[in-house]
Amino acid sequence: MNTHTLSGGFADAPIQSAQAFRAILDAMARPGKIMALHGAAPPAPLSMAAGVALLTLTDATTPLHLAGAADCAPVRDWVAFHIGARLVKAGDAAFALGTWAALQPVTRFATGLPDYPDRSATLIVEMDRLTNHGPTLTGPGIETATWLSLPETAAFRANRALFPMGFDCLFTCGSRIAGLPRSTKVEAL
């Protein structure tokens, strides 16, 4: 364990997590809207936004899956100290974190039950870029249509077809975050 494990959390958790949640709520309620997060300094390769999302939403009651490069000792130690989430395999996770490639196949993740669609995974997807250019998004939270640089469309269309079941996504890049709930229709531009 190095000293970096102990740092990088919220300095003032009640206030910073409240501000972070409002940004995440806005991101999820308005799919495609890119919001800024700040307040955490997680170890590489995690982006700041992914670290803030973990600190805000996960704790010892939420099984977490780290995928690919995110599943490294510094991140595992940081999660153990700041969050205490149990690290599990993909199918058991309430939250999963990694790049889109590392999270494949996404059909592994919980999509909820027909009578309890809320028992589904939330994927925190690390992105190289996050812009409002890409596939078209329509649905609840979007007035007419918006666009987001999604890694692909087929997986999200398949996920939308499961509605009301399905997983929900948060896309993170640096300090920025955007949401894509299962309710959003995704069409290739």
Binding site: L25, M28, T122, P140, D168
Partner: peptide
């Protein structure tokens, strides 16, 4: 709340 938002 976030799950509620995802399944209106």
């Amino acid at each position: 709340i976030l799950k509620g938002i995802a399944v209106p």
